[in-house]
Write a protein that binds this DNA or RNA. Sequence first.
DNA 1: CAATATTTGCAAGTCATTTGCAAATAAAAG
DNA 2: CTTTTATTTGCAAATGACTTGCAAATATTG
Lengths: 129, 129
Amino acid sequence: MTKARKAILKTLENVEEPISASELAKRLGDFCDPATVYRNLHYLEKNNLATSFILHCSEHGTERYYSSKEGNEHHHWFHCEQCHRFIDLGGCFYAEQVRQFEEKHAFTVHDHTFYLTGICQRCKQKLGL
Amino acid sequence: MTKARKAILKTLENVEEPISASELAKRLGDFCDPATVYRNLHYLEKNNLATSFILHCSEHGTERYYSSKEGNEHHHWFHCEQCHRFIDLGGCFYAEQVRQFEEKHAFTVHDHTFYLTGICQRCKQKLGL
DNA sequence: CAATATTTGCAAGTCATTTGCAAATAAAAG
DNA sequence: CTTTTATTTGCAAATGACTTGCAAATATTG
């Protein structure tokens, strides 16, 4: 494991929300090149040390968000369109459903994506909603 | 409604799978400019005539896929990583669950995304899996 | 420590999507 | 059905996330 790899993985582990590659690159600053961040995120995901999903938001555009896989439990998230933070919806609750779909359609599922977007409690209050 | 708008909506209605903006632009050919396709897809989505989600696949990269909203029932999809077709998983089955999340976390959900990726039955056979 | 394999930084691509602007078309007004 | 006003379009240039070629730097092997 190279030092860039370690630093990226450590950052993923220390952060409590999914984080985008560009945000990660920003946090690592001169520690390593953005290209290295992208390459290592692919490496980590391929080696089952991280997972990601793509999400579009008005402020950051379309980006891929990464989380470490240390907890080993797949989580799903709510994304606030106002403050752009993520709220953890808890461990994955789709394993059984996915299995049923596999049975019904005879396909093999490699991955599933689920997330919610909207406005969080705090932002609703701020906006008087 | 302009003629470009009508043509795009009609194409969305005639196609049975979600279709990407670039594929739509290709099908419309010289009928209108790609920029017009993008602008009108935004228009249609804003006016509740279409929905979309973002998905990454090895062959087409990261793209947004659109469906008309005529049937008025929100559908979810499986995407085959081999033949790159979509399989309809049926009408949305998350309304109740989303409501429970809203209650539990006191946020307001504007949208939810769910899809599966993997290998379809036909491709499994072709590949001898 | 030498030999080999992998990773990195840098700079230059890619590619979906967006945007400015002037011309063309649609909708509203008369 | 013209005129006026508002919206949309095509074109070309820009944006921004992400990728890639290549030679130098760092890891890993023996």
